[in-house]
Design a protein around this nucleic acid. Structure first.
Lengths: 253, 253
DNA sequence: CGGAGTCTTGACCTCTATCAAGTTTTGTGG
DNA sequence: CCACAAAACTTGATAGAGGTCAAGACTCCG
């Protein structure tokens, strides 16, 4: 993997490092931004001091001012349901953007919390729009990114909504692996940044069910789990699970 | 309710009529488009010949060229799950837009089918983007609309994902009423444009469950149903249902 | 009037939530 | 580094929501 390195200003390197596979990357590449444009984009990206576990990047209800990209660490988005329960609506891994859901109402509908120590890039939205007005193609690229981001999340939700608990877990594990894989990490062996509770909450399951699922998955030799360390041993089996609605789980032992 | 009427060119009236409450309306109003801009926007909007029940507006996999607004009638969006099952992902009522999910990949991820005879406005996306480049503010308005559209759908999915069957139905009925209400129709008494099967499919339930739910809702005096004719008799009760996760359904008789 | 499709109803059974203990891990202060 | 408390996680037993299967009843059309 060739790394662009020394011939570029440091901030730019950051963007590339952070956003190799994330939307920001797409901001630069397909619209043919030249070096100058990229530097302009780079100039508006702010580094923030790292968040500690439990810190919030933004709170639901606060005014929207920027979108964000995760450099390292992980965050969760949560909303407060009408009944007062907290609901995890998304996990954000390195290279991914968050805060896009606030664009329309100029208010964050969700709260973003760091699951572990995380460093974040902040992209002030005013300035991004301003820049986009000057750079042809950047604006439509923004549209495209948003549409995609949203489409993918929607797809995920759809997927989760009608599937059994075990299919949901399979889908999520594969998704996490895939996303870690894009960042150059192992797609089959990773540390879960989130607790079982966050996981089960996200998947719409009881924590107890999560626990039993992990156990079953392990007994079926599909994965290995130890606390937050996960290995996907039989990716094909997991994928097979997600496809057909039948095949509820047959232990052939 | 004052109606703007005769002082405007006919096509423009169409837009206003079609999009009184839909995103297109938002395209015009908040960014301060002047008459000239609105006419330019109006000029790119195409009328299509009406779709009959079962006709498709676009098929999944086909190239994206335009976004659409429903003038009259109703449509459903469906995707083909990996297992070959059709999944209803959305209903589109008069005044609402569809096709936005195709922007990022330039390919329609879903198929749009008319549930009844429907007339549709087509807005070629190329031209819309072109226009947006010339009209300051229109582009960011586009962003906002997309973000909102998507946020709302996401919210709906989230809502459905973790709720009981009966909460899902309550949410959907209220949503339909609300949407009909925005179009000037009764929010409490309307004809369902979709079959029970489509309904249950959309809500992620078995058709049999839908049937039983309608029965229970009726027994509880919350609604009246006769075939596709629905009356919401106790909106408060329905709303109460959607809020708390407890209160599974107590018939106090 | 008849036949296809849609909707309803009933019986049954599985999946997953819930309740209730245990057990392990994590975090804090000595 | 250890001890202890507080979380987090696991495990078992139980019950209920909702899926599935199988008939049966309407509806919509020609």
């Amino acid at each position: 993997m060739a790394e662009a390195s020394s011939s570029q200003p440091p901030r730019l390197r950051d963007i590339k490092a952070v956003c190799k596979t994330c939307s920001l990357n797409e901001l630069c590449l397909p619209v043919g931004l030249d070096q100058e444009d990229i530097e302009a984009l780079d100039r508006i990206v702010q580094r923030r001091r790292p968040l500690e576990r439990g810190d919030s990047l933004y709170q639901a209800g606060t005014t929207f001012g920027a979108v964000y990209a995760v450099r390292t660490g992980a965050l969760k988005s949560t909303i407060l349901a009408e009944d007062g329960e907290e609901q995890v609506t998304a996990f954000h891994l390195p290279g991914e953007m968050l805060g896009l859901d606030a664009i329309s109402f100029r208010t964050h509908p969700s709260t973003a919390l760091a699951l572990e120590t995380s460093s974040i890039c902040e992209i002030p939205f005013e300035e991004l729009e301003h820049l986009a007005e000057q750079v042809p193609g950047l604006h439509r690229q923004l549209l495209r990114i948003m549409s995609k981001e949203i489409f993918l999340e929607q797809e995920m939700l759809q997927a989760l909504a009608r599937r059994t608990a075990e299919q949901r877990l399979a889908i999520l594990l594969l998704s996490l692996g895939d996303r870690f894989g894009r960042r150059g990490l192992s797609p089959t062996r990773f540390l879960l940044p989130m607790s079982r509770q966050d996981l089960s909450n996200y998947l719409g399951l009881a924590p107890e069910t999560m626990s039993r699922l992990f156990k079953r998955f392990q007994e079926s030799k599909w994965i290995t789990v130890s606390n937050r360390e996960v290995s996907l041993c039989d990716v094909d089996a997991l994928k097979a699970l997600t496809n057909n609605r039948e095949a509820p789980l047959k232990r052939d032992g």
